[in-house]
Simulated assay, not measured.
Amino acid sequence: MKLLFDHNLSPRLVSRLADIYPHSSHLYFLGLDQASDRDVWQYARDNQYIIVTKDADFYDLVILLGFPPQLIWIRVGNCTTSEIEILLRSRYDDIVALSQDASNSVLVIYLELLGIKLKKCLKPLSVKVYSIFRLSNLENLIE
């Protein structure tokens, strides 16, 4: 299981998460930091990466082009690299489940924000694995 971190996430995540997500990389390290989303999509597909992003553009590509690659869409506002690291560590089992199920395409992770600082309430409100065939529109992502 290899994660490919989008440019909207810190390259430091690669080394910080190497113990549980070995062989992962960041667009910057691969020289793809200026590449189009479609080029990144193709690279991830050709090299068996799961794309990790905070950007809806890759979700749109799942709808348009299908999968692989699979996608982890982190739907949180501004937060630190440490908070993203904690989130990806805490959802390890869900990420493994996504990687092992070729019938699912997107893991959406979003947080419950209780009006206090994110780092004090870093607990998932919802973590879902969606099959591309169950995705009809963005309303399905809102509970």
Rank of each mutant, 00 (worst) to 15 (best):
K2A: 12
L4T: 06
P11I: 05
R12T: 10
R12N: 14
L13V: 00
L17D: 07
I20F: 10
H23F: 12
S24R: 00
S25L: 02
H26I: 00
L27E: 11
A35F: 02
S36N: 07
D37E: 11
D46S: 13
N47A: 07
Y49M: 04
T53F: 02
K54I: 03
D55V: 02
A56F: 10
D57Q: 04
F58V: 11
V62P: 00
I63W: 11
I63H: 09
F67R: 06
P69M: 01
P69Y: 06
Q70M: 03
I72A: 07
R75N: 14
V76E: 11
G77Q: 12
I84W: 04
E85R: 03
L87V: 14
L87S: 12
R89K: 15
S90P: 00
R91M: 13
D93N: 14
A97F: 03
L98Y: 08
S99Y: 09
S99A: 15
Q100Y: 04
A102H: 10
S103Y: 05
S105L: 07
L107K: 01
V108I: 13
L111A: 12
I116V: 15
I116A: 11
K123W: 02
P124S: 15
L125M: 06
L125D: 12
K128P: 00
V129E: 05
S131R: 14
S131C: 07
I132W: 08
L135I: 15
L138R: 09
E143G: 09
